[in-house]
Nucleic acid binder design. Structure first.
Lengths: 231, 231
DNA sequence: TATTTATTATTGTGATCACATTTTGAAGAT
DNA sequence: ATCTTCAAAATGTGATCACAATAATAAATA
């Protein structure tokens, strides 16, 4: 039996247990605190968050539909293992999806929202300067999310989040083995392009940001990291 | 209480109830047999498929994560309503996602698999000639799925299926009000491009197929259909 | 010591129940 | 007629239990 350790998380009043379980597990996976290949038990999770199997199972179903977990033939549940090929596909998908999302946001985003992006980027630079990898990752996600959700009818966010979620466990490994994150994000470039309403330039900035920013490793680096982590 | 009618579906031996419920509801939504705005009750579904609330709830959670269902603030569950804007976003997303999937399949697909595509396309033409809209829709999906899954590491299928699922209820409406489906698919074009391993041509064929094929309506047609259906 | 077998513990699963909230429908008042 | 009030029915939710299948551990065999 694995003594599952789960970071605590505030529970808003009235939130159902299954949703709370989903949020908490999701966060744990997103920041890579559950190792790929590690198997989870319903009862173990239920005990860890002081509830019962029923709502936990609902949370696990959702997470498996989101690609964060994989249900084996034994019906056992685990965090999928990463491979260099899978990582490549995920990053390529991220690029396509997010470029699209960025393009479809250009026509909707307000100056005020662009200001908000700049604000998030400042906080992000600050976190990087403090070498606070975890919050840097979160703020980077918030930057992208804020951009894409400027389009009120946007349909990509659940899919983008799914990709982030699938990348999460590997980023957890990466952050353990990479001494410093020397991040060269393209957020300023994106912001400038947004102010000019230049759709192509926005898309280019986002593509470059994904390719070279946080989590942007080349294939060799990936294989190295996977070997180091014994995957 | 709504007397929910659910098309029967064979249940493979040993399949868990929650998965069976998921499959059956999913299929019902995909072919548009549940109207947008129609609300579902857990007990109603459980009764309709002769089981109990527990596994049905798991199925509903998965479907909500897949975008097929929406959980309201009252915690009640319904099929999302369609709008012209939402439809536009979904179709644009479909185009981006599937072009990407097609491109990433070109390097992996075998001649044998291309033959299989041709076979599916023949069956599809046959269904169209018989004016059998339902199977035409299914075969069209199978054509696309077969293409994209030629890439063994492909990560887009769950997302493509999610989009199809969200389009489903509206296609159900469309098929009721559109007398004939005069479909001009671009499958032959795609097949020819695949044999030549011409990635750009494949992507172009898929884009055109989505734009002009089954479910490819212009904005005016959408608004008309939504008005006709009283949405 | 290594391998197989048998026993025990653990796990996923699904039905049931109790509780709180919401919805519904009828009776009454304006 | 329209709106309000209130009781009854329906619904989402989560804990618990029993069962079958799987995994883990101990015992026995080679």
């Amino acid at each position: 039996m694995g003594a599952l350790k789960l970071a605590p998380l505030a529970r808003p009043d009235g939130m159902p247990t299954h949703e709370y379980a989903h949020r908490r597990l999701r966060q744990a996976i997103m920041v890579g605190s559950i190792r790929p290949g590690e198997s989870l038990t319903i009862r173990g999770i239920a005990e860890a968050m002081e509830s019962s199997p029923t709502p936990v199972r609902e949370a696990l179903r959702r997470l498996s539909s989101e690609g964060a977990l994989k249900v084996l033939d034994n019906r056992r549940i685990m965090v999928p293992k990463m491979t260099a090929d899978r990582f490549g596909e995920l990053m390529a998908l991220r690029a396509v999806l997010e470029q699209h999302g960025a393009r479809r946001a250009v026509g909707h985003i307000t100056e005020r929202q662009i200001d908000r992006l700049a604000e998030i980027d400042r906080a992000l630079d600050d976190a990087i300067a403090r070498k606070d990898k975890a919050t840097a990752l979160l703020l980077n996600q918030e930057f992208h999310r804020t951009l894409y959700t400027a389009n009120p009818d946007q349909m990509i966010m659940p899919m983008v989040e799914s990709v982030w979620l699938q990348l999460g466990p590997f980023l957890g490994i990466a952050m353990e083995h990479v001494a410093q994150l020397y991040v060269v994000d393209r957020h300023q470039e994106a912001i400038a392009a947004l102010r000019k309403r230049d759709e192509d330039a926005v898309a280019a900035a986002i593509a470059a940001d994904i390719r070279e920013g946080i989590g942007g490793f080349d294939r060799g680096a990936i294989e190295n990291l996977l070997r180091l982590a014994g995957q």
